[in-house]
Amino acid sequence: MKRALFSNIWLPVALLLPQLVIIAVFFYWPAGYAVQSSFYLQDPFGFGSTFVGAGNYQSLFRNNEYLKIANFTLWFTVIVTFFSLAIALILAVKADRVIRGAKTYRTLLMWVYAVAPPVAGFIAVIMFNQSWGPLTEFFALFGYRFQVGVNFNDTAFAMILTSIWKQVPVNFIFFLSGLQSIPRSVREAALIDNRSASGRFWTVTFPLLAPTGFFLLIINITYALFDTFGIVDTVVKGEPGNNPMTLVYKVYVDGFRGNDLGGSSAQSVVLMALVLALTFVQFRLVERRIHYT
């Protein structure tokens, strides 16, 4: 907060009001509504609802399909996060080092940030086209018949690959800017203190990148959980069937298509809890421990 503040009363209220109104109507109301509906069982035809307490939650955690999806989401998140961070880190370290063409590489490695997830999914659909997709043909070279949308694992692979492709640029941008913010003097000191390049990386560069890394970890988990919706939806071509899907996709399928408002709301609340837990971890871990400045 600033020292020299203006003392008007109505002006700040007027300035805040639009934002507060929008947030109240489109954030707090729906969030509260989700919590409330998660305790009710809605009649599928829209005739009223019954209070069922934690019933929706109980049936959720007894539902094998839901647990299977949760399990898949977990693996999906872990794999996507790991690979998109690792690939981006390698590329950023290299891009930070080269002198010639540095700007061109940076551009070529970051533009995919602007590609919408469903477009990325669209590209996957083309790449894995059953009859002529280049990646399908590539797997055929090894005698494997790759079937996106039919085979669970194949579909999962396509989703994961696409999600990584879409996420590497964001991580790359952050890692590169993290690397470039390491003071020159620190690098030079390391150069004098440590003879081995990999030693310098692991003992100096990597720890200094840790704040960026932890921040990105949360960002990537959030991405894998939520922002991949467009990829999932396009790769399964809008036909969930027995295909792999993430928890968010399940909320959508149950609530929007299956008209199970109560169950879908309970799922929403579970996701909210998950995000809150992540944020909590972020504040505790990231803000406290890894602050060097």
């Binding site: 969030a31 929007f256 408002l261 879908s264 709301s265 929403s268 996701l271 995000v275």
Partner: peptide, 11 residues
């Protein structure tokens, strides 16, 4: 804290 995706139906 909460992305639109988690409150998509009520919204």
């Amino acid at each position: 804290l909460l992305p639109l995706e988690v409150r998509i139906l009520p919204s």
